[in-house]
């Protein structure tokens, strides 16, 4: 075997990568806030009135992130969440989804008929700009 396609199916792939993207976005936002000297992890926990270990486990992926905890974390970091669902854009020349599993141990199976059935999700955590600051920047 010269090449192995790690293919877990489009549904699982979509779920795993979405969860990973949310975590990465939170970690990126927290790192930026730390660099700015605006928020430490300890302060984040204090603001949310939870133990620091819970924040650690949520950010490391060891504990579940509910929509509420995601919203709370964004609030505590002074960030806002933008969320949208959109149909994937298909362009000529782009990668095509895998249609078969090449796992040597199991039955070869069609994953989703070669078509992307899932919707494309995007989640971004961005700093909240107050009305006052926005007005100031326009002056």
């Amino acid at each position: 075997m010269t090449s192995f396609q790690f293919d877990i199916g489009s549904r699982a792939r979509n779920a795993g990568r979405f969860i990973g993207r949310v975590r990465n976005e939170l970690l990126k936002a927290l790192s930026e806030r730390k660099k700015e000297g605006k928020l430490s992890q300890q302060e984040l926990a204090k603001k949310l009135e939870v133990h620091r270990s819970l924040i650690n486990r949520q950010l490391s992926g060891e504990a579940n992130l509910t929509l509420r905890s995601l919203a709370d974390l964004a609030w505590a970091m002074g960030m806002e969440i933008s969320f949208e669902l959109k149909k994937p854009i298909v362009e000529a020349g782009q990668n095509q989804p895998v249609t078969t599993s090449t796992v040597g141990h199991g039955q070869i199976k069609y994953i989703d008929g070669g078509r992307r059935s899932s919707l494309c999700q995007k989640i971004v955590v961005s700093p909240i700009v107050s009305a006052e600051a926005a007005a100031k920047s326009l002056r």
């Binding site: 699982a12 779920a15 795993g16 992926g61």
Partner: peptide, 13 residues
């Protein structure tokens, strides 16, 4: 698994 993603989903990610 500990979080919301299964082990294979974590590895894929």
């Amino acid at each position: 698994h500990l979080g919301q993603a299964t082990a294979v989903e974590q590895i894929d990610q």
